[in-house]
Design a protein around this nucleic acid. Structure first.
Lengths: 110, 110
DNA sequence: TTAACTCCCTAGACAATCTAAGTAGTCCAT
DNA sequence: ATGGACTACTTAGATTGTCTAGGGAGTTAA
């Protein structure tokens, strides 16, 4: 289709980032890896999507960041969920499941 | 979320239109109704999304149109799938299921 | 020393969907 | 016969999400 190269369904990035962080604080680069990992390498996020996504979520108060050192002794910005981010994740999951379920139902109609 | 009002998951409109038409030729207005119907009223497509979507699909050769009269004796543009539209529907369904499946898997990770 | 990998940043393009507006015909109830 | 709900199509413009494509700099291992 027009978006044959898309590595993600549109509108799911924020939710996936929140989900990744719900499993523990991480730096940006690691979030991309974790999302790949928990999706069996099916979902790949480009850095040009990931970092702007992180700024967006932080601006909205759903995640917070702090500079620290990574495992490799490199500077890295670690993100963690805020309380409102946890709530947001739940909302997004519910909404996603509702719409994805309806879409699947539609695809099965005959 | 930012898209709390969204009636659709982004990127699914083309597929849903093709799916609706795979069940039989229809005019634009009816396509919106059929999509609502086969999704148990969970998916609502605004006309400002639907009609531009139809022009897009026609431009790409996946659907064809013809003016005719509706049940109510009103002029209406009837659309039907082309052969390449049928192929496209299959591709989009496969891609959607792959990505939606991966997303669901990610959401269930712990 | 060079390649592969870790880590971050940003500008600009593109595409999808929505809001909001308009036109016009039909049907039905009052 | 009037007004309102519904059918049916069209289009402009805004918003937003994700991507492409570049940049920089540090680390590790061959």
């Amino acid at each position: 289709m027009s978006k044959s190269k898309a590595g993600l369904l549109q509108g799911t990035l924020d939710m996936l980032i929140l989900k990744a962080l719900s499993l523990g604080a991480l730096h940006g680069y690691g979030i991309g890896q974790r999302i790949a990992q928990i999706s069996d390498d099916a979902l790949k996020i480009e850095e040009g999507s990931l970092y702007p996504g992180l700024y967006r979520l932080e601006r909205r108060g759903w995640i917070e960041s702090e500079w620290d050192l990574s495992d490799n002794n490199q500077r890295a910005k670690f993100y963690k969920l805020t309380r409102s981010g946890r709530k947001q994740l739940i909302l997004e999951e519910e909404n996603w499941e509702r719409l994805a379920g309806a879409t699947m139902k539609a695809l099965r109609a005959s």
